[in-house]
């Protein structure tokens, strides 16, 4: 039981890191960036090639490279595909995001082929850790630890720094934020940069935990992380964390005790039930405007 719980929290931590990208971008730009899952896949490939025999970079450098590439990719996607649609209908933006998702997947297919690549074991020198008799893999621990660190940093960033507070202001009211002298376009770019950098971290963790890398690797985790973001309350940073972890735990427990075929159905079933009773998610915003 304990080992399933910890594995669930670990998988959930990866979902949470991905969900942060969805939720922050939604909070600021009010759009669902369905290409987010594919940025994860790109991050995985970058790290894979950086660690492959030709380049032979050590794992931390490969991770850093993946973060840099994904950050630039995220900013570029926003500039080229989403910014021109800033005043378009949300449906147009949504369709563009889906198109961007296919564009990234097919670019990967063209560049790197459909054959799955075996992601190298980044923790081959580390041994599984015993925890009250449960064997926990190093990548599981790293995922949980990374999630905690990211949450703490993001919370401090959005509550203590000027730019972070401005980000919250922009997410509430772009017009009023502009009147304060906040550069809304810069803030949106920054949000995409952070979200995509986190996607790279999630991509490397995901590929380390489930070492098959192919152009569709990011799709299902992306959809699940999106579910986690909605589950926790889209737009809410702690919501993404709680939603991600709950989703991971439910998935692993369902897989272990009910049926591995039905696990995904159970995950999405729980989402539907939660949304029936709390349409804005667990921590969704429900403040009413006063006159």
């Amino acid at each position: 039981m304990l080992v399933h719980l910890i594995n669930g929290i670990s998988l959930g931590s990866i979902y949470a890191i991905i969900a942060l990208g969805y939720t922050m971008v939604y909070g600021i730009a009010k759009m669902l960036n369905f290409a987010h899952g594919d940025v994860i896949m790109i991050g995985g490939y970058v790290a894979f090639f950086a660690m492959s025999e030709g380049a032979g970079l050590p794992a931390p450098l490969a991770l850093l490279l993946a973060i840099i590439v994904c950050t630039i990719l995220g900013i570029t996607i926003e500039r080229l595909a989403y910014k021109p649609l800033r005043s378009a209908t949300s449906l147009a933006v949504l369709i563009t995001a889906i198109g961007m998702s296919y564009f990234l997947q097919n670019s990967a297919l063209l560049l790197w082929g459909a054959n799955p690549k075996a992601f190298p074991d980044m923790f081959k020198n580390a041994e599984a850790i015993e925890f009250f008799g449960a064997k926990i893999s190093p990548v599981a621990l790293v995922a949980i630890f990374a999630n905690i660190v990211i949450m703490v940093i993001l919370t401090l960033f959005t509550t203590r720094t000027k730019v972070g507070k401005a980000m919250r202001a922009v997410s509430e009211d772009k017009g009023a934020a502009t009147l304060m002298g906040i550069n809304v376009n810069f803030t949106i770019s920054l949000t995409f940069a952070i979200g995509s950098g986190l996607a790279a971290v999630a991509g490397v963790l995901l590929c380390s935990a489930y070492p098959t890398l192919m152009p569709t690797t990011g799709s299902l985790p992306g959809i699940k992380a999106f579910t986690a973001a909605v589950f926790g309350g889209i737009g809410s940073i702690p919501g993404a964390m709680i939603g991600g972890i709950l989703l991971g735990v439910i998935e692993i427990l369902a897989r272990a005790y009910i049926s591995s075929e039905l696990a995904d159905a159970i995950v999405f079933g729980v989402l539907i039930v939660v949304l029936i009773f709390r349409p804005t998610g667990l921590l969704g915003k429900q403040i009413h405007e006063k006159v």
């Binding site: 000027k162 919250r168 202001a169 009023a176 934020a177 009147l179 002298g181 915003k285 403040i287």
Partner: peptide, 26 residues
């Protein structure tokens, strides 16, 4: 120059002090 917009448009999820800090953003 500063514009105090119609309908107040304060940042509801920011504290009073944070709202004021945003006013001094520049």
């Amino acid at each position: 120059m500063a514009l105090c917009p119609e309908g107040r448009r304060v940042f509801a999820q920011l504290s009073v002090k944070e709202n004021l800090e945003m006013g001094a953003y520049t």
